[in-house]
Every structure is written in structure tokens, then in C-alpha cells.
């Protein structure tokens, strides 16, 4: 049946492949999972035993120490990563081969998957924990065992990957360099603004309200910023539109064959090996280096 649909490809036998290095992606996901679970275990161990009174010495020792470490480390790591991405940027981004560009689109997608993963832990898991923590104590200071993790650890972590994905796209991918992706910017800046919005939140708690209605309008600033997650749909559309142009270039000498044989998982995982890594970024041919006509032309 597919032969009828694709008569042109009936006699070609070689299936084109290219390497996607997903080791770092997998490592990041595992490392983040471990990090988040450790943070939660730390809350379990020291939330009630050391964290009920912000004026106590044990709070200072177990929670303020964590606060003082996590802020510079996480933001510092972010700045280092973004600087690294900028310094190792593609200095002639318009001459990138279609294959490399396609690969970079996959890496951008992986950045966004990691970013989404961080949003889940922040917006759902630890925010939920904050809600229930407020039911165990009187309102203390803005620094509580749940806030110290939620606002000052998980937020810097998703900023790391959100801003990271933006810098990655701008320094590696022609379309995202020639133009600023509006929706990508919204998807990164919106959740970033949650941090300054803390000012509004704490101002309100300082003057209006000592009781905790979780759905109080005071908290709605966070909600509006959370809506910006929808903007990732726009980035997805930008990616598929470019895929439409790139894929015929990359797969032009491709073969027919039963698409049902495709096993992208095995395929992708096999390409994480050291041999595959050595082969990475090897240009296919000199003639492949030609400027890509983008939409902006």
C-alpha cells in the first residue's frame, strides 16, 4: 500500500540516519529527579523538627544555611551555563548544514522537555506542598521550609533551563537568531516574573491577610504567569514549520522500507554511545554547507 502511495521511493534501499546525542538529556532528567526528591526528603527530615520557628537557632542552622547556599549556587550555575552557551555560540550561524540544524532543533526540544519537567515539580509538586505546609503553622516569616525550596530552589532551577533554552536557540538555530520567537520569550519570561511577583505576594501578606485562603486574589499574580506555559505551543509550531523545510533536505536520498520497522527509541539510545559521540558534528559533505533559505527571506 505504501508502495502505491510512494512510487518514487520504491527502489531505494538505504535509510538515512543522523546522530542525536541524548546522553546529556537523560543525565539531566535523572539528576533533576534525584535533586527534587532529595529536596523533598530534606523537607521531610527537617521541616517539622527544625523548621517551625524562623527565629530559632536550629532553623538558622538547617534552613537558612540551605537558603544561603542554594541562592548563589543555583543562580551562579545558571549564569555560568548561559555564559557557556553564549561563548560557544555558532559564529557563522547562517552556514549551518541542514543536518546539524535539524539536530539542534531536537536539542532545543530536549531543553524544553527539561524546562517542562522543572515546571511540573515547581508548579504542582512543591507548590502543593506549600499549600499544606501553611496548614501546619502560623504564618511565620517569608522564609519557611516550603518557601526555601519552592521559591529559592525550584524557581532558579527552571529559570536555568528556561533561559538556557532561549540562549541555546538564539546562539545555535538560524531562525531563532534572525528573529526573536515571541512565544518562546513569553514562555520563559512569564514564569520568570513569578520571582518579582513574590514582592506583591509578601506585600499583601504584610498588610492584608494573616490567614491562608490559598485561592485568595493575592495569589493570582502567580496564576497569570503560569498561563504563559501555553506559549510553548507557539514554539512547537515554529519547530514543525522548520522541520517541514529541513527534513526533505536531510532525508533526500532516503530509502523506502516499511515505516513500521521504525524504532526511534532503540535508534536514539544506540546513538548515545562513545562511537556515536566521536562521529558527532562531522559534516556530511562540503557541498552540504549552503545557506538555508528561511522564512524571513
Amino acid at each position: 500500500m505504501s508502495g502505491d502511495a510512494l512510487p518514487r521511493m520504491a527502489n531505494v534501499t538505504v535509510i538515512k540516519t543522523f546522530d542525536i546525542h541524548c546522553g546529556l538529556f537523560a543525565f539531566t532528567m535523572v539528576a533533576l529527579t534525584i535533586l527534587y526528591i532529595s529536596a523533598r526528603l530534606y523537607q521531610q527530615a527537617f521541616g517539622f523538627s527544625m523548621g517551625l520557628d524562623a527565629n530559632s537557632p536550629e532553623f538558622d542552622r538547617y534552613w537558612m544555611t540551605l537558603f544561603r547556599i542554594e541562592l548563589p549556587v543555583l543562580y551562579g550555575a545558571g549564569v555560568l551555563c548561559w555564559s557557556y552557551l553564549f561563548l560557544t555560540r555558532d559564529r557563522s550561524i547562517e552556514t549551518v548544514t541542514p543536518e546539524t540544524e535539524l539536530r539542534r532543533y531536537f536539542y532545543l526540544t530536549m531543553w524544553l522537555v527539561v524546562y517542562s519537567f522543572c515546571i511540573f515539580w515547581t508548579g504542582s509538586f512543591f507548590a502543593d506542598g506549600d499549600g499544606v505546609w501553611h496548614q501546619t503553622t502560623l504564618r511565620d516569616t517569608p522564609l519557611t521550609p516550603s518557601h526555601i525550596i519552592l521559591f529559592y530552589a525550584t524557581i532558579p532551577i527552571y529559570l536555568f533551563f528556561g533561559v538556557g533554552s532561549f540562549v541555546y536557540a538564539m546562539t545555535r538555530i538560524p531562525a531563532f537568531c534572525r528573529g526573536v520567537s515571541l512565544m518562546h520569550a513569553i514562555a520563559v519570561v512569564g514564569p520568570f516574573l513569578i520571582l518579582p511577583n513574590l514582592g506583591f505576594n509578601e506585600w499583601g501578606h504584610a498588610y492584608w491577610l494573616t490567614e491562608e485562603i490559598f485561592s485568595h486574589p493575592l495569589h493570582w499574580g502567580f496564576v497569570v504567569l503560569g498561563w504563559c506555559a501555553l506559549a510553548l505551543a507557539g514554539v512547537l509550531m515554529q519547530i514543525v514549520e522548520r522541520f517541514r523545510e529541513l527534513i526533505p533536505l536531510v532525508f533526500k536520498q532516503d530509502a523506502a522500507g516499511s515505516p513500521t520497522d521504525a524504532n526511534p527509541f532503540r535508534d536514539a539510545w544506540e546513538k548515545c554511545g562513545p562511537e556515536a559521540q566521536r562521529q558527532r558534528y562531522k559534516p556530511t559533505s562540503v557541498s552540504g554547507r549552503r545557506p538555508i533559505s528561511g522564512k524571513s527571506k
Partner: peptide, 9 residues
């Protein structure tokens, strides 16, 4: 949200 707009860089 799903529009693929690029602004001028």
C-alpha cells in the same frame, strides 16, 4: 499561543 511569530532581532 500557537502562533509562530518571530519578532525582529
Amino acid at each position: 499561543a500557537s502562533q509562530a511569530t518571530f519578532l525582529k532581532n
